[in-house]
Amino acid sequence: MDQFLQNYGFLLVTLVQQSLLAYSLYFPLMAGQLSLASPGFYALGGYIAAIMATAEYFAPWRDALGWGIFPLGWLAAGIISGILALLVGIPALRLRGIYLALATIAFVEILRVICLNLAITGGAIGIFGIPQLFESRWSYIWTFGPLLLLILCFSYRLDRSRVGRAFKAIREDELAADAMGINPTRYKVLAFVIGAVLAGVVGAMSAPFLNTWNARQGTFDASIAYLAYVLIGGSRSMWGPLLGGIMLSALPEILRPLKDARLIINGLVLVFASIYLPQGIVGAVGSIRNFTTQTLGIGRSEK
């Protein structure tokens, strides 16, 4: 077991971490909004945690708080990401359609260029020598794991709450939702902010996990990857992002021997999944089950 965790501990934690990032895209999608901003907030959160853990200015804080600086970093990352998300989200979400996606692409690029140029973010090299919360990579499951459980509980409750129903109403038909008295902009912004806070916190947790932080953490490529997790897992079920995140981030490791062909296959998976699995894997499993229950009368579950 110990040997197994030595070998695969890092990978296992990475799967959890990537799934969490998938959820940061899932919440806006619940309200029908495509946000590609997650890598931006992820990078931002990581920088905040990395700066708090290494910068001279925060040294007295670190002495006073000890390991408490880590949760404080998560908190700071969450709050700052939330505020920034409000600033980005409000102008973009007044508009319907593709504008949020475009605004978030712009946001990620602007943030990347800024981080590459500031002294405090360490320029191109970034921030390194980040103090560690745990010795082994595997132990980081104790930060990402509880967060994932929290997010799963949250999604479960959200699904059944008034807010969750409002999200779905907006996704199905924004105009109708508006007519029913739901304020679409408010809920769209809320969904976007939830995703941003989550991405920021995951970033803050990831900085010590990866030992170093730099501007390459937040790129357009990462946006695509997270989107793929959600859509291939299933954007309409709370289990979709988890399944998609785990499967797709394990895929490159499984395909390791294929080297260059790896990313080609990734791309093909995206094309095929969007054409043949429009509801994602969870959706497809659901419709197969419906098919068998309804037509063949087998596997009927108690309702």
Partner: peptide, 20 residues
């Protein structure tokens, strides 16, 4: 939204095929 993803997929395939 799916068309967006499938076109991203095509882009990914093209770029990496070119690299290959």
């Amino acid at each position: 939204l799916l068309a967006l993803v499938s076109s991203l997929g095509v882009a990914l395939v093209t770029v990496n095929l070119l690299q290959y």
